[in-house]
Amino acid sequence: MIVERARAKLNLALHVRARRPDGYHELETLFAFVEHGDEIRVARADAPSFTIDGRFCKALRAEDDNLITRAAAAFAADIGGGPWAIGLGKWLPVASGIGGGSADAAATLRALAELEGVAPDDPRLFAIAERLGSDVPACLLGRTALGRGRGEVLELVAGAPGMPALLVNPGVAVSTAEVFRRWDGVDRGPLGAGPLLDVARAGRNDLAAPAIAIAPVIGEVLAALEGSGAALVRMSGSGATCFALYDDDAAAEAADRRVRKAGPGWWRALTRLTG
């Protein structure tokens, strides 16, 4: 059995530049990843199967079609192999802006590649990832990167591995399509240049305002994280998960206690950035 971590994705900054004729949006974003995530398990089998467990498994149990099964089907069609038994340990909230489904699909591709003796940088994997969704290529790469286009045009940048991070989700699922639909269409400019955190702090998330309009509790989460001594506070993706980065463990742990009091029912994950 191959076990692969599907690490949560953070958008340290997310600039929406334009609506595209194909229905997507032109983006500039800083992708980063944390240690916390879902878990993908794959093994050869006599017949294909998909099982799911974990804290957030109930949100997906009724789905016969998902990004994991699509990733496996695409791998079999384009590269070969199978059938496989695939298991998902679902520990990330669903529809939460941290790439849960995309990370799961990417981890499935990595795990199947290892099982079938395919190089992890095989271009066929990235071609499949791009077809599956805008965030899947970044999650397949799994490293700090600048994303352009829909987010699939990637350029590696120096990360901040080991930096403490606190992820907070208020328990609401926000529709990515609806958040993008409510974007005001104003191009507020590109990402800057320089060290990762400097660029992130000077940046923004252009989807925060429409997401907060849909789910005002996101603003409450951001308010709880602001003033906690964080180096950066931001909503990730289209929401509703927000995050804060800290210079040391003590500050992150203090912030975790503060947020627990502000929102006792909110999901929280105290973790670290990866490279």
Results as ranks from 00 to 15, higher is better:
residue 93 P to F: 01
residue 115 L to G: 04
residue 108 T to W: 02
residue 119 A to C: 06
residue 147 G to S: 05
residue 75 F to G: 00
residue 115 L to F: 01
residue 114 E to F: 08
residue 75 F to D: 00
residue 125 L to T: 00
residue 102 S to P: 00
residue 98 I to L: 10
residue 107 A to K: 01
residue 139 C to M: 13
residue 77 A to M: 09
residue 81 G to W: 03
residue 145 A to G: 02
residue 136 V to H: 06
residue 105 A to Y: 03
residue 118 V to D: 02
residue 93 P to H: 03
residue 92 L to R: 02
residue 83 P to R: 00
residue 107 A to S: 08
residue 103 A to T: 14
residue 137 P to E: 05
residue 126 F to D: 10
residue 75 F to N: 01
residue 142 G to Q: 07
residue 111 A to T: 08
residue 117 G to K: 09
residue 74 A to R: 15
residue 82 G to Q: 04
residue 111 A to M: 06
residue 76 A to I: 15
residue 74 A to T: 05
residue 102 S to Y: 04
residue 148 R to I: 07
residue 139 C to N: 11
residue 91 W to Y: 14
residue 97 G to S: 10
residue 100 G to S: 12
residue 71 A to H: 07
residue 133 G to H: 11
residue 134 S to Y: 13
residue 113 A to M: 05
residue 146 L to K: 13
residue 114 E to V: 14
residue 111 A to W: 03
residue 113 A to L: 05
residue 75 F to T: 00
residue 106 A to T: 02
residue 134 S to R: 05
residue 102 S to H: 03
residue 77 A to F: 11
residue 98 I to M: 07
residue 98 I to E: 05
residue 76 A to M: 15
residue 74 A to C: 13
residue 77 A to I: 10
residue 75 F to S: 00
residue 74 A to I: 12
residue 87 G to H: 07
residue 101 G to P: 01
residue 117 G to V: 09
residue 146 L to W: 15
residue 110 R to T: 01
residue 137 P to I: 03
residue 143 R to A: 15
residue 72 A to R: 15
residue 146 L to C: 09
residue 90 K to Y: 13
residue 146 L to N: 02
residue 78 D to S: 15
residue 131 R to C: 01
residue 101 G to K: 13
residue 80 G to I: 09
residue 148 R to L: 13
residue 125 L to C: 00
residue 133 G to L: 12
residue 122 D to S: 08
residue 120 P to N: 01
residue 104 D to A: 11
residue 130 E to C: 14
residue 121 D to F: 05
residue 82 G to R: 01
residue 114 E to L: 14
residue 125 L to V: 02
residue 109 L to F: 06
residue 115 L to S: 04
residue 120 P to Q: 14
residue 123 P to H: 10
residue 111 A to N: 04
residue 81 G to E: 02
residue 110 R to E: 05
residue 129 A to I: 06
residue 134 S to D: 14
residue 109 L to C: 03
residue 133 G to K: 11
residue 106 A to Q: 08
residue 83 P to E: 01
residue 128 I to T: 05
residue 100 G to A: 12
residue 108 T to A: 14
residue 82 G to Y: 04
residue 96 S to F: 08
residue 78 D to V: 14
residue 113 A to P: 02
residue 117 G to P: 08
residue 141 L to T: 01
residue 139 C to P: 00
residue 97 G to V: 07
residue 111 A to G: 14
residue 134 S to L: 11
residue 102 S to D: 07
residue 100 G to T: 12
residue 86 I to P: 00
